[in-house]
Design a protein around this nucleic acid. Structure first.
Lengths: 209, 209
DNA sequence: TAGAATCAAGAGCAGTGCTCGCATTTTTTG
DNA sequence: CAAAAAATGCGAGCACTGCTCTTGATTCTA
């Protein structure tokens, strides 16, 4: 398992070879099939691990910021996501890159997958609790499963639950563009650019400070 | 070439087999190597094609909206991007998904790659021209290559060149999350959600109407 | 028309995921 | 404690992949 992890970290998921992990383990390639029915099953396990690793890292960063203001916390958590991505590019690609072949997200992944978006959502929910909370409109309920979201984030007003999802996907977009090279030629300092984009989001959310 | 295109559209890029396109063409697999030195070279060609296909589609949509207001145009063009992605999911993944292996973007791709971001940038530039244009600050110039961006978009004020890049990556984030399944369980109506998120961006840019 | 450049074929190499039958260990059970 | 049962591993082998190399046609060109 950890052997496969290391190989992915070195060469990327697409290059992961069942026979190679077998070799590294001094096993026959066929022996691996006692533990993983198929190569995709191995990858799925790796995906869950990666989700949890990222989730743990982000939760830890959030815990350290528990006394900070909402803006600082929001930006700090997003930074933690980016930092994890830069440190584990292949795991990041494994999670957020092109899904393999047919791919339907196995049930086991979904709980691990929500860990980091939950942290971000909770911050926004708490920031909102300091002001007012208008309940979501019918139109908003039609396009988003408000209950499913607020079950993990805490209460969020209508526009904000939309913006929260939008912000999370935007953070993903920023990191992916950086990591996958789509900012080459336009963005020069990725750190400060990321921060600037995030503060713009914080402005949008009206986060103080 | 178009055979490979069709196979990618059917099975995705990772499953593209040189031997399969050879079979489809009633050729020996070795004959393909007269035209493409390696599988990656074939894929690179497909990437350029996909970029241009998407660029053409978006430019066409923009042309149809030439008489519309800036907000309508901005939203309309973004919708065109999404529509193209939904219609060509494998080509989209080929462009914006996990870059293959070592991957350094070949020189040929970059011009094709900027076509759609250029359209979006031009709209924002023109919208700004209707109001005022403050030139970018030193801090902004430090993190973004302003000249490279404005060379293709037209003049943009400092904060806006950052927000424009941020918006483009956010649009990518929205589409990718939808296409790669990360919105499953939270977003119910992808169309209206996408529109809502975009109008939120239009608000941020102060686009009238 | 002769020479040269191009195009295609086929055999073959090393690698892959995966299956199957057989042996060996380990664990459970009577 | 011994026997049955389950788990674990091995090696050969199949069909597939990207890619190389040599050989044979075809077509363009001087």
């Amino acid at each position: 398992m950890s052997t496969a992890q290391a190989l992915v970290a070195r060469n990327g998921a697409s290059a992961l070879s069942l026979r190679e992990v077998a070799r590294e383990l001094n096993m026959a390639s066929s022996a691996i099939y006692r533990y993983f029915a198929t190569r995709d099953e191995l990858l799925t396990t790796l995906i869950v691990n990666a989700y949890n690793d990222m989730g743990a890292a982000v939760e830890k960063a959030d815990a350290k910021l528990s006394t900070a203001g909402h803006r600082e916390r929001f930006v700090g958590v997003a930074r933690a996501v980016r930092r994890w991505a830069l440190r584990h590019p292949h795991d990041y690609a494994l999670i957020f890159g092109t899904p393999v072949s047919g791919y339907v997200a196995p049930a086991g992944t979904i709980v691990a997958a929500t860990r980091v978006s939950a942290v971000l959502g909770r911050i926004l929910s708490q920031a909102e609790a300091d002001t007012t909370t208008a309940s979501p409109s019918a139109a908003e309920r039609a396009m988003v499963d408000v209950d499913a979201v607020t079950a993990v984030t805490g209460p969020l007003s209508g526009p904000r639950v939309i913006d929260a999802l939008s912000a999370w996907s935007a953070i993903y977009g920023l990191i992916s563009f950086e990591l996958f090279g789509h900012f080459v030629g336009s963005v020069k300092k990725n750190d400060t650019f990321f921060d600037a984009a995030l503060h713009s989001w914080a402005d949008r959310f009206g986060l103080p400070n």
